[in-house]
Write a protein that binds this DNA or RNA. Structure first.
Lengths: 395, 395
DNA sequence: AGCCCTTCTTTTCCGTCGTCAATAAAAGAA
DNA sequence: TTCTTTTATTGACGACGGAAAAGAAGGGCT
């Protein structure tokens, strides 16, 4: 067991307490009765669980005077006091660190970037430590304690052990990053795969609230996917799951760095779109902004590249829907900047390839501010804070 | 709530009891200590839970004298008394009913077929009732009570409500089959999708024992897939899940009855293989036996058709592995008769298309006796008997 | 043969959690 | 004021499962 520094612990002695807290956290202000209903508990249990949480300051009674039914004792909704505690989330990319300071409701208070020139652990750790200390100073100014640090890294991450098993992009292997960061920052650290972290944020604070089965698809440099099934994020037996980017949509398609042809990512990844535009138009586009502009100006080759990308993404989403039957798919990612260029194709391909009532699945898009990945990291830190480590994660 | 006739109820007052019973049921004779370890409970809890189960006759102490460690008090393993109770499982296909009488350990005691000429509910129900009564008579001879009936039907089935929402193959829509069958048979009835039923059987009595994440792929007329994630079978928000048969592997492939091209089923389904062989060889093959024989005699066109099918299946499995990261994939189905004809392609395509450590997934094959589908139905009946209907299935 | 040692099982005691049912509280309506 | 209606709280109670210690059933050692 990795020694976790404990700044302050959450008074969750029992599963019911964390379940109740989570319900209030994600479903906004609720009356105790309503909490009981949604959590499947008796009102009495809620009252009892809520009291210590109010005493500890995590919950507050919210005298929200909104359209109450004119009859009976007025409801007394309860909500989470976001200002009670702060958390830090950091997304590690090859070129930079993105750090955010969020409150307990995962609302971003401060965001900050640090460029990276070297992606080795030895180089990243000091920069991360420095970034965290800056954010800690901000928190100091707010007079609020920081109770956890979440780090999001792409690749195969073992969250329970706090180890980055293998991150191809950073070229890290078996790095016990949680332990390292805990040493330099003095905070409890959670390390998680970036897409899964984003998925946790959606599950608790985004479009996945209240759903037990949904998927998050990120469109950008790569195409990623986080899956929630039976109310829990899928981790994959070998650390790999949600690799929608390497689902084949056309075996005759362009080669992918994974060694196959026609992966979603090989058609709809940023680099693939740019390459396609260069090939078909001859224009020397080197970044997405140029490509989007070209497409918006009506260049046929550029539009076609985006159309192909949209079709690939739509097919990928339909595959997820056919296999898992989620209630909702949330499309997000930097690539959404070009959403108008492929929205139609995504919907069209999805509708065509979804089988039977899988097509009823609600496909939504969510804009993704650049700090969102870091916010996801913070969400995992909040999750770790609230939910004590389960010695028997499932069976 | 559908009124369920109660022949006899299982003394599972608490989740711990059903968990302990399930552990013993699927993991064979175990000492109490070992049960405690696997179920994550204390030995004391096991002792307490086991006693009433032994008293009720569901468990027996198994004085198995096998290579005991020469030290300490001899272990006193416990196992399920299969002969304590019987269950009936029926698989409904378009052309026939397959019924089995199994014991509590889901071992088949009697199997029986009934041909069907008409697949309407009105025609099927009397035949099913007759079949069940025959099996009940057999059970009578054994002097053992039958405690439940499971019915497996292809298509969209709402198990909780006991309703067949839509079965394209049988052309049933919103048929409250559980209620109907309960009326005519007097047994508690569970209706479940056929592939999911088979998956339950594998989870409890087959190659999925002890795994929390695995997939079952059935190869036959259609290509189906049952998925277990976090220890539970995926139902799909809209009743559809595991539709691996309609994952696209080649958008330029042959048309599929679902309206798309190049679905796994359009390449590897029984009809698709036969059609392909007819097209390439000109031979007038009309059933699988002929096709297999042709291929075994070395007909190039037939071998190629199976090779293509194997590749499509391998790709489909890789897609599942990439998205879910299961520990194991179990391939089964009538189509396995031709397994030697496409085994190599399945493995090859899987290995090529599986991304990163998803390729570590263990791909196994299991022969599928013809009664296996019916046995799956019986497994769901056993499951319903043991696990009381959960008012809060998950959250 | 008696004693010790080891391992599995059972018992006893106890804390804790959540429900039940009754009660209090906070309004508006009659 | 009093009644009605709805929400919140209280306290008694039962049950579940854990901890610890005792018991049971051998084998080995002296």
């Amino acid at each position: 067991m990795r020694p976790t520094p404990r700044v302050e612990t959450f008074p969750a002695n029992t599963p019911a307490v964390s379940q109740i807290f989570t319900t209030v956290l994600s479903q906004g202000p609720l009356t105790r009765l309503e909490v009981a209903r949604r959590a499947g508990l008796s009102p009495a249990a809620v009252t009892k669980a809520v009291r210590p949480l109010i005493e500890a300051g995590y919950l507050v009674e919210d005298a929200a005077e909104e359209a109450r039914p004119a009859l009976g004792r007025p409801a007394n909704p309860v909500r989470v006091d976001g200002g009670r505690a702060l958390f830090i989330g950091v997304k590690v990319t090859g070129g930079e660190l993105i750090g955010v300071l969020t409150d307990l409701c995962c609302r971003i208070r401060v965001a900050r970037h640090v460029p990276l020139t070297d992606r080795t652990t030895e180089a990243v750790l000091p920069h991360l430590t420095e970034l965290v200390h800056q954010l800690l100073a901000e928190a100091e100014d707010l007079g609020t304690p920081v109770l956890g640090l979440g780090v999001a890294v792409s690749g195969d991450v073992d969250r329970a052990e706090g180890v980055v098993r293998y991150s191809p992009f950073l070229d890290w292997r078996d790095v016990p990053f949680a332990e390292l960061a805990a040493m330099t920052t003095g905070l409890p650290v959670t390390v998680e795969n970036d897409v899964r972290a984003l998925t946790v944020a959606e599950q608790w604070f985004g479009a996945g609230v209240g759903l037990s089965d949904f998927a998050v698809v990120t469109v950008g440099t790569g195409i990623g996917c986080g899956l929630v099934v039976h109310g829990r994020v899928i981790e994959g037996a070998h650390g790999v799951a949600g690799e929608i980017g390497h689902v084949t949509v056309d075996p005759a398609g362009p080669p992918c760095h994974c060694g196959n042809r026609g992966c979603v990512e090989a058609i709809a990844g940023e680099a693939a779109i740019l390459r396609r535009i260069r090939e078909t138009t001859g224009a020397d586009v080197t970044d997405t902004a140029q490509a989007v502009e070209l497409a918006h100006r009506g260049a046929a080759g550029a539009r076609e590249a985006y159309a192909r990308a949209g079709e690939a993404i739509g097919r990928g989403i339909a595959t997820v829907a056919n296999l898992l039957g989620p209630e909702r798919v949330i499309i997000s990612g930097e690539g959404l900047a070009a959403y108008d260029l492929f929205a139609e194709q995504i919907r069209g391909a999805f509708a065509a390839a979804a089988f039977g009532s899988a097509a009823q699945c609600d496909v939504q898009t969510r804009p993704l501010p650049f700090e969102e990945w870091a916010r996801g990291a913070a969400a995992t830190a909040i999750q770790s804070f609230i939910t004590p480590d389960d010695p028997h994660p499932s069976r």
